[in-house]
Write a protein that binds this DNA or RNA. Structure first.
Lengths: 239, 239
DNA sequence: CTAATAGTGTCTATTAGACATTATTGT
DNA sequence: ACAATAATGTCTAATAGACACTATTAG
């Protein structure tokens, strides 16, 4: 019988089967009345030249957690720093990558368009792409599946939370936020119903400022602490 | 410039960093008025002798998907065949396993106690353990985190769906199902409210049979197709 | 003044909680 | 009859949808 210490002395990682481990991130935002996802043009094989999600191999040395790896690879590939990141799901199979058994831990987040910097549009090979135009793009690997899953998850959250607020620059108007919810849900929401939820939740603070574009000025709000954990007990109509 | 074919010819998986990839499964059931999780006693290092979730290394040859690997390893370690399995989350970090960078894709499912077979109690090293008694057990790795996350997820689902029905043997009574919901939510639910939901959803079919234990016989129900996708628009009270 | 957008009033419909009442069994 | 459990009746409270109405700005 060996002790755990003895066991570790004789253990060699190379004796175990090798699985490719990558992390990918679905970053979504709302800009010019559209939901958009951040994509990069693949510089290397496989699937070179196709657009795909920012991500890459897990780096054993520098990455101490999966989340760190996801953030690092997004910054490395796009220059964009996501304000937070959460786990979406994990894909993996024998055939999804020609190099062998491969698994990808997929993260997702919403972020304000402005936080990605205006330079984004000038960088070759990095772009915010409208979800509506995605069908025409032949994305790398199974990345379009991950995007679909992320959007579906945020659609659900739009029904019972204010999570979509993370796609906006602060401060924002109630209409701004409602538009993001509408884009996710796929249909209009009653203004009255939406404002009632803003008031009932107490999760949006009136800044006292207002913004005028056309018509009556709109009150500007910012998020209160804990908004990410707030859930309504009743959903908004989903169809 | 090389083609993708050329690239694959010269590609060697061994040149890439090795990450340990395991799958683990949180199987929950409801038995004798308690929620229980299926655990196994670890036969090998590391953490030998501790109780932990059934799971194991991804086997490149036999496993063609993550889900398959999870099911295979549950059956191998426990003899129990889970009727379905879904992805919960993925844990990974540099330090969670002394053998090196390690990641575990965690699956979860609810299943009827009876489906695990009565032999379960006679097998050394495999047991259904009540969640209430888990604190006294020092589980391997971060398995208690995964159990906590699974229970929290099913608690949420108990608020807006009939997913907890998968912990029951069919047919079952409305009270059976309500008890599972109550165990997950942590407090009683109004019988009237619960029955209204059963009727409104149309997801539970009256079998015409009934079961008598003490008092008035209770109607036996079975699930209708699509129950796993059904969501109430309003939640049950959560505290 | 008009157009446009923000925001409110108010009625209805739905559905959960509370809790009393009735129904059906075994002993 | 009585205890135990199942199932229903019914009132109230909360909250979303519908939609008309008022408020405030630019030009």
């Amino acid at each position: 019988m060996t002790s755990e210490t003895d066991f570790l002395k004789t253990y060699k990682a190379e004796d175990y089967p090798i699985v490719l481990v990558t992390v990918d991130t679905v970053l979504l935002t709302y800009h010019e009345s559209e939901l958009k996802v951040l994509l990069v043009k693949r510089a290397n094989h496989p699937e070179k030249g196709k657009w795909g999600l920012p991500g890459g191999f897990l780096e054993q040395d520098q990455d101490k957690s999966l989340e760190y790896a996801a953030k690092r690879s997004v910054i490395a590939k796009t220059g964009v720093t996501p304000p937070y990141i959460e786990q979406l799901h994990t894909l993996g199979s024998k055939n999804r990558d020609p190099r062998g058994w491969s698994t990808s831990i997929v993260f997702s987040a919403l972020m304000p368009y402005a936080a990605s910097g205006d330079f984004i549009n000038t960088v070759e090979g990095v772009a915010w792409v409208a979800l509506n135009g995605l069908d025409e793009l032949d994305l790398a690997f199974d990345h379009s599946d991950s995007i679909r899953i992320a959007v579906e998850r945020y659609r659900q959250k739009a029904l019972y939370s204010f999570i979509p607020v993370f796609a906006l620059t602060q401060p924002f108007t109630v209409t701004d936020l409602r538009k993001v919810h509408e884009a996710l849900i796929g249909h209009d929401i009653q203004r009255k119903s939406f404002i009632r939820r803003v008031e009932a939740s107490g999760m949006l603070k009136d800044t006292g400022e207002s913004r005028t574009e056309r018509g009556r000025p709109a009150t500007l709000y910012k998020t209160a602490k804990g908004i990410e954990g707030y859930r309504f007990v009743r959903n908004i109509e989903s169809e």
